[in-house]
Each structure stands twice: as C-alpha cells, then as structure tokens.
Simulated assay, not measured.
Amino acid sequence: MPSKSKGVCYCTKHIFGKVVIVTGGNSGIGYETAKDLAYRGGRIIIACKNEEHGIAARDKIIAETGNRNVHFRKLNLASLKSVRQFAEDILKNKKRIDILINNAGIYSSKNVKTEDGLLEGMQVNHFGPFLLTCLLLPILKMSAPSRIINVSSVVYKKGKIDFNNLNMEKETESSFKGYQVYYNSKLCNILMITELSRRLEGTGVTANSLHPGIVNTNIFKGVDDRFTKIVISMFKCHFKTPWEGAQTTIYLAVSPEVASVSGKYFVDCHQEVSSKTSRDPELARKLWEVSEKLVCLNKLMNDNIQTKSKCKVNTEKLIV
C-alpha cells in the first residue's frame, strides 16, 4: 500500500449496470477513477476534448479490466456549444446517469478568453462543469439515487469571489495572475456544491466536493511561472500518484457510507469542514445565479438545449 496516501478507498462495492460520466477521464486522476469504476462493473463514459487520447484511454481500460462497457464521448469544456452537444447526446441516448464526476480541470497561467467570451481557466474549471451538471440534472434525478462529485483543491482557501470581476475582466496584463484564476475556480467548485445540494434536497441526488491531494499529473504543464516551476520540481517526489489522488473520488462514487451525504467536502476519504466562505449560502446562491447568466442557462432550457444557439455574454456589463 502506498505510504504517501493517508486516504485509500477500501470499499469493494460493485456498480454493475450503473452509468458513470468522468470528465477528463483520459489521463491522471480521471483515468484512474474511470479504470477503477470499470473494474467494478460500471458503464463508463470518458468525456474529454482530445479524441485520440480519449479513444486510447478507453481501449486501455477495456484491455486492463475486461469491461467492454467503456466509451469515449467528445467534450470540450472550453466551448459551451460542445457542452450542450454532449448533454444533448446523453439525454437522447442514455436512459440513466448514476454518477457524474466533474474531474477535468486546467491550470492556465494566461489571460485567454474562449469563443464564449469567458476566461479559459474559469470556463474549463467552473462554468463548463456548471452548465454540464445543470443540463444533466433531469436524467440524474430520474436515475436517483445518484451522485454528483466535484474535484476541487485545497487551494480554494485562497480563492476570492468578486462578482464585479468574476471573469477577471478588470485585470490588466500586468495585474493578471493565473494562479488566482485557479484558486477562484476551485472555490467556485465548492460553492456550486453548497447551492446544488440545497436545490437537490429530497430528490435522492447527492452532491459533494473533494480535495484529491497534490498529485503528479499533467495539470502542472499549464504553469509558466519560473518560481512555481522550481518549487514543483523540488517537491514532485512527494506528490501523490494519480492512483492515490483518485481514491477520494472513488470513495464518494461507490461507498455506502456517503450514500445520503450531500453538500460536504472530503479529503483522504474523510469528511472535513470547508471554510466558512465556501459554505456561505448567500454567496453560493449568488454565484449560481451569476453563473446561470454567464452560460445562458435559462435561454438554453427554453430552447430545449438547441445546440445551434449562440451564447456570448458581455461580462463587462454584468455587475451584481
């Protein structure tokens, strides 16, 4: 048993017939999560933007586990159109979704906007998963008991929510800090769960978040700060492996112990109390409402998720 990981999921429960979506399931924590759940008999959907990597991961998991119910579906969280197309495909072709794992994320040090006018780091880490979750809520409710899991990070504690600068539109080239975008998005992951769990009360759908630990994955490829790179290289040998980093996600996906637990934050397969800010119901509610506007959620629901509809928000005019 690896010594670096205090938290290991010892639950041996199988999930035969259950349908699981793992975003970013082609590598790192997501891949190890998808593989473990495939071993348990789940019907796995690996959702990622790179078709070549997604298919390769699918084939490798099938070969290792013998479970042929592993599939790849293209999903680019940096494109709200792609999120809508993915959700529409799921709703048309799947009768149930039992577990949604919002695992994919990036560490983007650059001030880059997507085709939707949103900051890339915020969209991939928060707005994209937020829209995906909202669009899949009907099928998750029909599949209850079901589970939603957000992979966050302990750095959420350094995150700040400024509704007048949520998309960092007020930052100049010199004042923009890529790491702050990552911190903010990880705080959004937990605040999303705070409000989502409230909205899901009585539905049989649970929603929880987690910190996987500091894990040696390719997320650090997005770091271009020289000092940060040096620190990472110095301490990389102490990071968790992707297998270790996946344990808490797996625990939240399969353990009977958390079957009725919702709105909580977990570290090393144990529940911990997250910060007061991340549990602030008013802040969580407001973030939810602002996020709905930024991804044009109400318009999408009225249009019945028509993937051809265009949604681009002028975030500079979004003052709360």
Rank of each mutant, 00 (worst) to 15 (best):
G28R: 06
F86A: 04
G204F: 09
I232D: 09
I101P: 09
N302T: 14
V151I: 15
S174W: 04
S233F: 14
L191D: 07
K141W: 07
V215Q: 08
D303K: 10
Q85G: 06
S143D: 11
P281D: 02
T241D: 11
I161S: 03
E195I: 01
G105C: 08
I99L: 13
I161Y: 03
V231E: 11
K286A: 04
E244T: 04
V290S: 05
Q271S: 06
K312D: 08
V290W: 06
V273K: 07
V261S: 01
K18V: 09
N103W: 03
K229P: 00
K240L: 15
L118M: 03
A47N: 07
V295L: 12
A259D: 12
H126M: 11
G245Y: 03
G54A: 14
S109F: 13
H14T: 15
E195F: 00
V205A: 09
K60M: 05
A63M: 00
E88V: 06
S255D: 13
P138S: 06
S5E: 15
T249D: 02
I232V: 15
L118D: 07
G263I: 01
I97V: 15
H126Y: 14
S197P: 08
I99S: 06
Q180G: 06
F235V: 14
E52H: 12
G263M: 07
V254H: 15
V313M: 14
K221P: 05
K60Y: 04
Y156C: 00
F266E: 04
D268Q: 13
Y107T: 09
E120N: 13
T228L: 13
A253H: 01
V181D: 07
K310I: 15
M192V: 03
A246T: 00
I21D: 05
S291T: 04
P281H: 01
K229H: 04
M142D: 13
G213N: 11
K229A: 00
N218Y: 04
I319M: 12
N216Q: 08
I149H: 02
T277G: 03
G245L: 05
N304F: 12
L283K: 06
L119Q: 15
G202D: 08
I219A: 10
Y10M: 12
I190M: 02
A87S: 14
Y251Q: 09
I97N: 06
M234H: 07
S143Q: 10
D162T: 02
W288Q: 01
K276Q: 11
S146D: 06
L294R: 11
K160L: 12
V231N: 05
K317E: 11
T241I: 10
A87Q: 09
G25R: 03
A63V: 00
V258Y: 03
N314W: 04
N67D: 07
K13T: 14
L132D: 07
K170P: 02
I190R: 00
L252T: 01
K308F: 11
R58G: 12
K177F: 11
E257M: 03
S197E: 01
L137V: 13
L297Q: 09
T217Q: 08
D224K: 12
S291K: 02
V155K: 02
I29K: 03
G222K: 05
N304I: 08
A104L: 10
K293Q: 12
A38K: 11
S262V: 02
G28V: 10
L135R: 11
L294P: 05
I190L: 01
F266Y: 15
K308L: 10
E171D: 15
I99M: 07
V258H: 04
G105E: 08
V8I: 13
V181A: 05
T217N: 08
L137E: 06
H53Q: 15
R279N: 02
P138H: 05
P281L: 01
